[in-house]
Every structure is written in C-alpha cells, then in structure tokens.
C-alpha cells in the first residue's frame, strides 16, 4: 500500500473526497485531443485534397515528396513518394515537427498526463499507478528536447505565414486578391505565432535564463512581453490547435469541390 493509503497516513478508504466534477476537465481534454489525433491521422494518410491554388493545408506544408501536387512544393521535392515499396504520404515527412512541438509543450504535458495517463487525473485525486519516475527516464526524458521542436516550429511558422501570403493570389496566380481561404490561412498562421511566442521555452530563450535583467534591457523587455503572452499559453495552445484543424478542413473542402473559395476581390 502506497500513496494516500500508506500506513502512516490518515486511514481514509476513498481515493479522493472531492465533491466537485473533477473528472469533467480531463474528460473534455481527452475527448478533444483524441478527436484531433484521429482526424490528423486520417488526413496525414489520406494524401489528397491538400492543395488547390492558392491554398495548401498546414498538414502538408511544406510538401517535400515527389508525389506532391504540382505547385504545392515550396521547398522542392527531396523525398521519394515511396520507400521499400511502401507509399508514404508527404505529410508524414514533416508531421513529426509540429507534433513533437505540441507533444513536448509544457501545457500539453499537463493536459495529457492528466487526461490520458491519469498521473494524476486531477489534483488530490489518487492516481492508479503503483510506480512513478516522472520525466527522469526514457522515453519521458525526451521531453527535455522541447526547445529543438520549438526552433523547428518557428521555421514552420515562417513557411505557413508565407503560404498565407501566397494566398493573396487567385487560382490563376495573379496577386492582389483576397478570399475566405486567405483569411483562414492568415488566422492559422497568426494563432501559431501566438502559440509559439507564448511558449515557456521562448520565454526562457529570450531572457528567462538571465541572472541580471538590468544588464540586458532589450532582452528584459522581450521577456516581459512574452511573460504577458505566457499567461495565455493554454488558450493559445487550444485555439491554435483548432485553427490548424479548421484550416485543413477548409482547404480539404475547397480542394475536394465541396466548398467554393469565396473571393472578396
């Protein structure tokens, strides 16, 4: 017997005496994240309806495989469309970076440790595991690589912002047009920047690691701004996730012909 049932502790048979709906938040988190994972997996393997001039889905950008639709490869096509006889969706070459950024994110860690691993399911609710080593051993020690995914995430933000700028063209490639798709990609890029800029690693990199703010006034100012954003990091984590999903849904719908990309001008 360990934990709250250890011999020296107060003899209480319940795992928790909380009377509020402590299970609701992890249940919602589980539902939303698992829905996203299922949808993202489906889309990553679907390998179609990801590009229609001038829009590209964030799940497939940058498109780096020889199977990419003409016009969708911003950075060339260094990968083959199959290896060892197995066809590989272009999405699978890049997905590890945004996925890794979110998987190692300090906020998402809290969310999925609670909702999926129940470690703990909620505060002061006994977890079901008999042993716990935290993030000291493989594979969870890899969470310490969050900053590398952050750096890669910034590259993706630049590329997705460029995709949004390219969406100021029409289907024939002429500049100076604005469509609903332009706004969707712009919104997605903006939310991703907010998510990245509010990140704890960003806060640390810009100034958090300093001992003397007074000797680095510019970095102190940057740290102060990011600290304000950092308060909202969980919010940005969620809405940027919805933003990515919505951008992909929109592009898919337009590319498949289900929706028409309305042009304001």
């Amino acid at each position: 017997m360990s934990g709250v049932f250890s011999p020296t502790r107060a003899k209480i048979k319940e795992r928790t005496l909380r009377t509020d709906k402590w299970w609701l938040q992890p249940a919602i988190t589980f539902g939303v994240l698992i829905s996203f994972v299922i949808y993202a997996t489906f889309r990553a393997f679907e390998n179609k309806y990801y590009f229609v001039e001038p829009l590209i889905s964030p799940f497939y950008s940058p498109c780096l495989s020889t199977s990419c639709i003409e016009g969708s490869s911003l950075l060339g096509q260094p990968f083959n469309n199959e290896y060892f006889g197995i066809g590989i969706s272009p999405s699978l070459f890049i997905l590890i970076f945004p996925l890794g950024f979110r998987m190692t994110c300090y906020y998402y860690r809290k969310a999925y440790y609670r909702a999926f691993w129940m470690s703990p399911p909620a505060c002061a609710v006994a977890e079901p595991h008999t042993k716990y080593t935290g993030e000291t051993r493989a594979p969870l020690i890899l969470q310490n690589g969050h900053r590398w995914f952050f750096y890669f995430g910034l590259i993706f933000n630049v590329l997705l912002t460029y995709d949004a700028i390219l969406a100021f063209r029409n289907a024939e490639g002429n500049w100076g047009h604005l469509s609903v798709g332009t706004l969707v990609l712009l919104l997605n890029a903006t939310l991703l920047w907010l998510y990245s800029m509010s990140c704890h690693t960003c806060r640390h990199t810009l100034g958090g690691r300093l001992k003397h703010f007074s000797k680095h006034p510019v970095r102190y100012k940057l740290w102060s701004w990011v600290s304000v954003l950092n308060h909202k990091h969980p919010t940005f984590a969620w809405i940027s996730l919805f933003g990515v999903a919505f951008a992909d849904i929109y592009v898919r719908a337009v590319a498949s012909g289900a929706w028409t990309n309305f042009y304001f001008f």
Partner: peptide, 30 residues
C-alpha cells in the same frame, strides 16, 4: 525531473504564486 508539471501546486497555492510557470518550468529550462 520527477515533476511532470501537472500544475496542482499552482492551483492550491493560497498566495497565488505561479509555482509551475515561474519557478519549476524556468528551472527545467535551465
């Protein structure tokens, strides 16, 4: 390294110290 930043410490702090965001995560980054 044992801390998996589930933020319960921050939730219960009566002084509203942002224990996880301002101390534990910065230390993890350091």
């Amino acid at each position: 390294g044992m801390c998996n930043i589930t933020k319960c410490c921050t939730e219960v702090c009566p002084e509203h110290i942002r224990i996880t965001d301002n101390a534990i995560i910065p230390m993890k980054e350091r």
